[in-house]
Design a protein around this nucleic acid. Structure first.
Lengths: 219, 219
DNA sequence: AGGTGTATGTCGCAT
DNA sequence: ATGCGACGTACACCT
């Protein structure tokens, strides 16, 4: 990892054109060759960047980076304040917990959390426009398509509505109903779900993780 | 801007839980208080971060950052390699010039690219739920609502379908049909467009830019 | 390599 | 503040 602080101007052309006027900025060159240009503000997103793979050509007062799709990043260095390199060694893997995949696992293991009597038919049930998270059946063997989100927003409801449309057109599953499950559901998403005759359920992830264990202990 | 290189372990809890095992990493603390933790790889996205506003409490071997929504970022510093601060001054504004708007301009200027005989009725034609990119008429004076995207995905088809629903409910435009135009259209988007009776058209931006000039030269 | 869905998405703009 | 759409989205996963 190379860390440069320099007064510079930047031009990017490729998927769009961008120009950064002269100012002091942080340049990060990672060992895979990717380069990013940060200002002192605006969250973590760099103002400009070029991902690996690319070719970087450096001269006294300029850095030119090109990639295989003909994007060009051109940095003119007016005044170099600092230029250091560090050896970071290998990066152990990042561990994450609490994303949608976990939520789906927990609910697949315990469909009765969604509705008493629910049995899991299929996880990632395929439709022509993509997989719905869970397909379940209730005690009357009626089908329910379940869409799970971490945050319940309006586009998630639309997504489920589209799936339902396609699943319902299969005679085997005709009459399928929808359940929209999320840790929290926005008011507008609830309104739209109501309009689409889709049930809503808010679940607490920590609680869900909690009740999962006692149930496993029963067996 | 403060730039720290240190061997550290990191824990984040908030919207999810994340843990970074001990390794050397780059910590960037921007003047707005936001902090990001980078490894030496993986493009520009940091492994962990905390945006402003937040409260940062620093001790000899640890940095604890909390924000108003009770997210917590905890960095344990095992070995500090470097710790420097720089004054960046003010950042002049970034200038961008995108492809998206230009594509609409080109098609508005040349609707026949979409379909021979097409005439432009209105750009940004207003509906109660937002403007559709182009409203056109063909040689039989039938109406066509055109939605233009750089990338044609399923959401764009839904968007156009919603517009069509509203436009069609106006007696003047009843029977309006839809055309979905993009540089490339994903298979699933095509499937949904088919189901919604919306025509799809993939256009080449460079080609379009090319044929624009000869036409302009005719006048 | 290309398609598809998620993201602690981020960002900007309108309401 | 919240909703909504665009992003040089990035990124993991699957075929």
């Amino acid at each position: 990892m190379r860390i440069i602080v320099a007064e510079c101007t930047v031009n990017y052309s490729g998927k769009l054109s961008a120009h950064l006027p002269r100012a002091v900025r942080l340049l990060i060159v990672k060992s895979d060759g990717s380069i990013s240009i940060h200002s002192d503000g605006g969250a973590y997103k760099p103002m400009n960047w070029m991902n690996s793979p690319n070719v970087m050509v450096e001269s006294d007062d300029a850095i030119k980076v090109t990639n295989p799709t003909d994007e060009l990043l051109e940095i003119t260095i007016h005044d170099k304040v600092s230029d250091q390199s560090f050896d970071f060694g290998i990066e152990p893997s990042l561990q994450k917990d609490g994303v949608e995949a976990h939520l789906q696992e927990l609910l697949a293991a315990d469909p009765e959390v969604i509705e008493p009597g629910f049995k899991l038919v299929k996880r990632e049930f395929m439709t022509p426009i993509g997989p719905v998270d869970l397909l379940c059946q209730d005690e009357d063997n009626s089908y329910f398509a379940v869409e799970i989100k971490r945050r319940g927003e309006i586009d998630g409801v639309e997504q489920l509505a589209r799936y339902l449309e396609f699943i319902d057109s299969d005679p085997q599953y005709v009459g399928v109903k929808g359940v929209f499950v999320a840790q929290s559901i926005k008011p507008q998403a609830k309104v739209l779900a109501e309009k689409r005759s889709i049930a809503c359920l808010e679940v607490d992830y920590d609680l869900l993780r909690g009740i999962e264990k006692p149930q496993q202990a029963l067996f």
